[in-house]
């Protein structure tokens, strides 16, 4: 293929001009974004879309297979699996979102403070991050659960502490690079305050990196929280949650109804994959901007 042909091919494949952001994501990125949008929409509209009350047992439907009335059958208590998957997305996804929001906020603040102040402050923050790094995230969650008791608050607290150093390390090294640039020195000589420079200059310039970083971390948070719920320490029954459903669904699967575990497991996998693809694409754009 000559260069001209390649150029033509690229032109015909081009998406509509109205969607430059989508075009930059590439085909796989668009699929991932669409999937996440669909999951989010379903989650928000669960009260309208779900055919049944997710928590209402129906003994006639217990361990039933797929049927026109119950598209994915029922679980051990006869609750509608499809409705539980729809409602379950709320707990499964809101926990990780909260974890990422908190850890990104704390991590970014720590990182920018350390990078700006340098010297002793930076040394203390860096050592603290090193210590946190040495401990696996799940240990924090388990300790928090031991103190606060099983349930979402303890797990969110534990995983927030575990995720903070990942954000902080990446943002700190980028902030160190950025603050060497002359425009920062110029702002300082202009008499701008340190906080002003960090908020008005550093933060906006680091934003693409921070977003890319938190999207990738979201995928891990979904898995971690689901795993902890699976272990029985996170989301507590009878609340609908994908992690819990994989666990209770395994039991049902041995008794001939695999759809609960399969559905929940597949959704976790799809959401995590989509989040990772999106994180990768955003990260790549960030790379191209540099």
């Amino acid at each position: 293929m000559t260069a001209t042909d390649a150029l033509k091919a690229r032109r015909t494949l081009r998406l509509p001009r109205t969607a430059p952001a989508l075009r930059r994501l590439g085909p796989l990125g668009v699929v991932a974004a669409a999937l996440l949008a669909a999951v989010t929409l379903t989650t928000l509209l669960a009260p309208v879309l779900a055919p049944y009350d997710p928590d209402r047992p129906d003994l006639f439907n217990a361990l039933a297979g797929a049927s026109p009335e119950h598209l994915l059958g029922g679980d051990a208590l006869g609750r509608d699996v499809l409705s539980r998957l729809m409602w379950g997305a709320r707990t499964t996804l809101s926990g990780p979102l909260l974890i990422i929001f908190l850890s990104t906020t704390i991590g970014t603040t720590l990182a920018i403070t350390a990078a700006w102040a340098g010297g002793k402050v930076d040394a203390v923050v860096s050592r603290l991050l090193d210590v946190l790094f040495a401990v696996p995230g799940i240990v924090f969650a388990l300790v928090a659960v031991a103190v606060l008791g099983p349930g979402v608050p303890g797990v969110v607290l534990g995983l927030t502490i575990a995720y903070t150093p990942y954000v902080a390390r990446v943002v700190r090294s980028a902030a160190l690079r950025e603050r060497q640039l002359p425009y920062i020195a110029a702002a300082w000589v202009q008499g701008r305050s340190a906080v002003g420079i960090c908020v008005r200059h550093l933060l906006p310039n680091l934003r693409p990196l921070i977003i890319a970083q938190s999207v990738s971390a979201l995928g891990f948070a979904v898995i971690d929280l689901a795993a902890i719920s699976f272990l029985g320490l996170g989301v507590q029954p009878p609340t609908a949650d994908w992690g819990l459903m994989v666990k209770s669904g395994l039991d049902s699967a041995t008794r001939g109804q695999p759809l609960e575990a399969l559905g929940a497991g597949l959704l976790i996998a799809l959401v995590v994959a989509a989040v990772n693809v999106l994180g990768d694409r955003i990260g790549r754009q960030e790379g191209e901007l540099r």
Partner: peptide
């Protein structure tokens, strides 16, 4: 103090060599 820093700013300013990185690319 920040007041002193602003006073110093009104005394002396600087222009750097590299025209590319001396401006915030988002501003």
């Amino acid at each position: 103090s920040s007041a002193e820093r602003r006073r110093r700013a009104r005394e002396m300013q600087i222009v750097f060599q590299d025209p590319y990185s001396s401006l915030d690319k988002l501003q």
